[in-house]
Write a protein that binds this DNA or RNA. Structure first.
Lengths: 337, 337
DNA sequence: TTCTCAATCGTATGCGCAATCGAAAGCGCA
DNA sequence: TGCGCTTTCGATTGCGCATACGATTGAGAA
């Protein structure tokens, strides 16, 4: 590796001058500067971020701990985050939590020992431990997607509104005459799951429908087997549902696949609405009616908050809730464009 | 931050003993070890990866430079990579190239100054410069997805076979009686694009069809506008195509959207086959006939090669080509399962 | 007692850099 | 010539760690 002193030797100056030229941190005679620049070019000097980080105490790196890769919904979120992060001159260090508390712990520890300057975390179902260490070490953190009820000081959070929009989904089905409306939720314990389920019940209640626990199934993410089972059980009910509210992206795909396997036609045999949109929701058969999350904005705002906190650690902690958009298409049984 | 010497002070030993206990790098009296462990617990010592990296000259980090996030096709590849990488005890540092040579250069430089131990790169259309610096600094590298004709020594590469499978796609359409078969390609300059286009011509030729340059359009990734234009031009031809071979995932989605906007029915009005599969290709209307890439294996094998090279730098460089699988569904005009 | 040797641990160094401190040189002015 | 001041830059230090090397101890042999 070519180091600063190599460059210094070639340029016939001291290493400290090289450093100052690179960082523009003090005035240098034009000739000297030129010589240094030439020496850098000649030696192919690249700089050592590790050494710089050790010295400066900052890594210019932001850690991202979420099921970023295993969960397609997060794709666009990560995309937006990466955009903003790299525009701000930071790098992104990725650690996949697989939405599992144990792996989440490892992921955060990993990011910590890599000394990330700040962190974006989509908390798992049991994030207490990591939130604790994070706040103890007072690492600037923003929680994304899943927003806990109480947030530790110095932690920001951003997510979407889950309850009312889910209730609206139920409203829509109820207005179409459905009385047996089921829901297949995402992973138990996530705040999004809880909130959407709450919204589901709100919808059931305010439309004067019967509260039937049999109509609520957990779809768990990942394999899709839980959804397969959920659909089977739902259809085997003595009074099976005529409509389903799906809790997230993965549940939606698995549910549609399960229904297709049973040769059930949507929306003729059963109506479907989903929380979470797809860019290609238009291309599905039938075209999916969804509650679409502003995923890009979610990511962009998360980074914005983080940068602001990096700039001023004493900022009061903030919660932001973004509004989803109703995408009215065909799977609900309507025929809108 | 709590450092080693803090721990040492609490445990009443020297810092080097703490280090040795942590790394199990020399024998230590059981009592001493216990004291150190207790002190670590008590102080909440976490270790500083940065300092360790500087000292050891290795970061336990693997850099990934590809349009990982902006291109959904790569989702599963990244997923597989992350799995293997973290299982091997490494972290993943992400840098999105957006498939643009300039940004690719910045991304690689970024990874380099973060001192990644090795790199996985999906080369852009003009990767000469970065391949050069990579091989000059002799960083273990594996090229993924796009496999250049000539590879520098010490660089491995892995991708799928593109030409013959594309020709097979054309074969299939020709056997169904199509004589006007168009193709919409991905970004110009990528080796995958070139190879698939080559396969397209092979298919045209060996089925005795007329070579018509008008039937070949570039779909460029990203916005989907190029595809929109391509479809418009194709349909405006005096003898428009009756079938289209789509060059990749993004082109496929954009093409289907463009066709849908024109109220054209697939496969009745026009047949469609695609290179690249989707996990939910079954849910599209109509169900897509595709050439499916073994994306997970692509990622897993890439990491495997990298780890092997990390283990032994003198390995001869290897190319691996994986075989895609024909997924026969309905958009081609057949009615298989 | 003195010496040897093994077992256990501490001291010192340097990884590559940023930043502090102070040295050297040039200038004007008395 | 001598003083103060500015401009330009070099020597040095320490970030937190791993590790080469040396110091200390006690047991056993001579």
């Amino acid at each position: 590796m070519v180091t600063m002193s190599d460059v210094a030797r070639v340029a016939d100056v001291s290493a400290s001058t090289v450093s100052h030229v690179i960082n523009k941190t003090r005035k240098v005679l034009p000739d000297t500067e030129k010589a240094v620049l030439a020496a850098i070019e000649a030696t192919g000097y690249w700089g050592d971020g590790i050494a710089r980080s050790l010295r400066k105490g900052t890594t210019e790196t932001i850690g991202l701990a979420m099921s970023a890769i295993s969960n397609p919904y997060f794709g666009d979120v990560v995309h937006a985050i990466e955009q903003s992060v790299s525009k701000a001159g930071y790098s992104l260090l990725l650690a996949d939590t697989h939405d599992d508390p144990a792996r989440e712990k490892r992921a955060v520890k990993d990011l910590l020992s890599h000394r990330v300057d700040a962190m974006i975390v989509a908390p798992s179902s049991d994030p207490e431990a990591i939130l604790d260490t994070l706040s103890k070490r007072s690492i600037p953190t923003v929680l994304i997607d899943r927003v806990p009820d109480e947030i530790r000081t110095g932690m920001d959070a951003i997510g979407v509104i889950n309850d009312e929009p889910t209730a609206k989904l139920v409203d829509h089905l109820a207005q179409l005459g459905h009385t047996r409306i089921a829901t297949i939720t995402s992973r138990t314990g996530l705040t999004t799951t809880t909130e959407r389920l709450h919204g589901y019940w709100t919808g059931i209640d305010r439309n004067g429908l019967a509260r039937d626990p049999d109509l609520v199934r957990v779809g768990d993410d990942g394999t899709g087997e839980a959804v397969e089972l959920a659909v089977a059980e739902l259809l085997a009910l003595s009074a099976p549902p005529t409509a389903i509210v799906m809790g997230n992206n993965q549940v939606t795909i698995a549910t549609m696949a399960a229904l297709r396997n049973r040769r059930m036609s949507v929306p003729a045999d059963i109506a479907l609405v989903a929380f979470d949109d797809f860019p290609w929701a238009d291309l599905f058969h039938p075209r999916l009616t969804t509650m679409s999350q502003p995923v890009e904005e979610l990511g962009a705002q998360a980074v914005k908050m983080l940068l602001e906190r990096l700039d001023n650690r004493d900022l009061p902690s903030r919660h932001i809730r973004l509004e989803p958009t109703f995408m009215h298409r065909e799977s609900c049984g309507c025929n809108e464009g």
